[in-house]
């Protein structure tokens, strides 16, 4: 009979993590702890064993891989909110900086945001807008799923027993990005509404991800198509206020918000429209992001 597993496993590789989860199928997976420990402190969850991911080097940090960045599951928001990664994926940096407080951002991870899969998960609308791909590892090997397929419902994911998130692959897009969030203050707030709008100047698309307005992150496809159709792509501009307003309306129509203790469905729809319009006017401003000489790096 093997020795009883330690109640806290501190594996140092993904293989060791998967083995620890195979040994202790009921184990709770711990990364930054900012979701799990709230539940434990409140007595809502009582762990009998824990598998910690924080010592796994493969899961830390991020790297550039061609026209993508690969974010390790244990990358913290503090690592995302400024520096070279925030320059490469500005909307993700903006979203990261709105999360919690410096203390929370020093601990909480992008893999945890995905694993928890809260409708209010702050990075999820950005990842959805960018068509980021979640990489998982498990007993049956590794898988890749679009964020939109990974999150299956309110705090529900496509993770199978014994599987973990190992990384997120985020495509790099040339063009401006904006993330806006409504809450009762600038820190320590669970979002009432989130809007991420990303421009792809090369693909000539506008991408809109919405959060806290449906069980899962929402892509506002008809709003995206409308904006792309009405943008002046030579200048990178949306000059008409009517287009900006209509884009906001179409984003609001893509949502299915609820009334809850943080807000009402009506307010959420209204706030999405305002934020989406504001975001579009920033990423494709009336004066354009290009000079008249044609496409350039802004």
């Amino acid at each position: 009979m093997p020795a009883a597993a330690a109640p806290v496993a501190l594996p140092e590789s993904v293989d060791e993590v998967l083995q620890a989860l195979a040994d202790e199928p009921e184990a709770m997976i711990l990364a930054g702890g900012t979701d799990l420990m709230v539940e434990v402190n409140a007595g809502r969850r009582r762990p009998v064993s824990v598998v910690s991911l924080t010592r796994v080097r493969e899961l830390a940090g991020w790297s550039r891989d061609g026209d993508e960045v690969v974010l390790g599951a244990c990358l913290t928001y503090a690592d995302m909110e400024r520096g070279p990664l925030a320059a490469l994926v500005p909307a993700l940096g903006q979203a990261a900086r709105t999360i919690g407080s410096p203390q929370i951002r020093a601990a909480a991870t992008i893999g945890g945001n995905l694993g928890t899969a809260s409708p209010a998960g702050d990075t999820l609308p950005v990842l959805a807008a960018l068509d980021a791909v979640v990489e998982t590892a498990g007993p049956q090997g590794s898988r890749r799923l679009l964020v939109g397929d990974f999150v299956t419902g309110v705090k529900q994911t496509a993770l199978l027993p014994g599987e973990i998130v190992t990384a997120v692959r985020v495509p790099l897009r040339r063009g401006r990005q904006e993330f806006l969030k409504v809450g009762t203050r600038n820190a320590m707030v669970i979002s009432v509404v989130m809007v991420a709008v990303v421009v792809d100047l090369d693909g000539r698309t506008v991408r809109a991800g919405l959060g806290s307005v449906a069980p899962r992150p929402v892509r506002a496809r008809s709003a995206e198509a409308f904006a792309a159709e009405h943008a002046d792509w030579r200048r990178g501009a949306v000059a008409s206020p009517d287009v900006v307003a209509r884009f906001g309306q179409l984003c609001a129509e893509a949502t299915s918000p609820i009334d809850d203790h943080r807000s009402t469905a009506d307010y959420r729809r209204r706030a999405v429209a305002v934020c989406a319009s504001r975001a579009l006017a920033r990423v494709l401003p009336p004066e354009g992001v290009h000079g008249d000489g044609g496409p350039s790096d802004e």
Binding site: V8, G33, M37, V38, S52, A78, P102, Q103, A107
Partner: peptide, 16 residues
């Protein structure tokens, strides 16, 4: 060297 909330750290995870 990272400022965190001690209430959100699992004590046993802080070993080492």
């Amino acid at each position: 060297d990272r400022l965190v909330c001690a209430c959100l750290v699992l004590a046993a995870e802080a070993q080492g």
